[in-house]
């Protein structure tokens, strides 16, 4: 299953196993609903992230990052997943690999940029996926 324009952002294997659960390859009812649910989930999560970033709530930011990481990983949205993992680590005041401690200030700074990157990645993959489902439909 080729998804145009999703060479790096979507892990084909993971996403295909979602597509495989579609009963109808034309309608793709199940995967489409999952993906579009993820869109809504991601947008609301980013809103909360922005809010928590203002509050400098690193712990919640880490949880939000983990949360979105899980769903994006399930869909194979690797780039979003990678950014979310960074958010998770930064929220724990660790570096992007989670191995080294960083200061809270450094963490907040990195969080701000990472959340922005994550939004960008998400918007990119969202376009790809929406195009994919529109084409499919």
């Amino acid at each position: 299953m080729d998804i145009p324009g999703a060479k790096d952002s979507i892990d084909p294997a993971t996403f295909e196993q979602i597509l495989e659960m579609d009963d109808d390859e034309d309608e793709r009812e199940f995967s489409k609903s999952i993906v579009y649910d993820f869109f809504g989930q991601a947008e609301s999560t980013f809103e909360k992230m922005d809010k928590k970033l203002e509050e400098s709530d690193l712990k919640t930011l880490s949880e939000l990052g983990h949360f979105l990481k899980g769903s994006s990983a399930t869909l194979g949205l690797t780039k979003v997943q990678a950014q979310c993992e960074k958010i998770q680590h930064y929220g724990q005041k660790k570096d992007d690999t989670g191995s080294r401690d960083i200061t809270e200030e450094d963490a907040l700074k990195k969080l701000k940029t990472t959340i922005t990157e994550a939004k960008t990645e998400f918007q990119d993959v969202e376009k790809v996926l929406k195009k994919f489902y529109r084409d499919e439909a």
Partner: peptide, 13 residues
């Protein structure tokens, strides 16, 4: 599973 997306996928599987 707390993530609805994951839950739905796992449940479907």
């Amino acid at each position: 599973e707390d993530n609805m997306i994951n839950l739905r996928v796992l449940g479907a599987f």
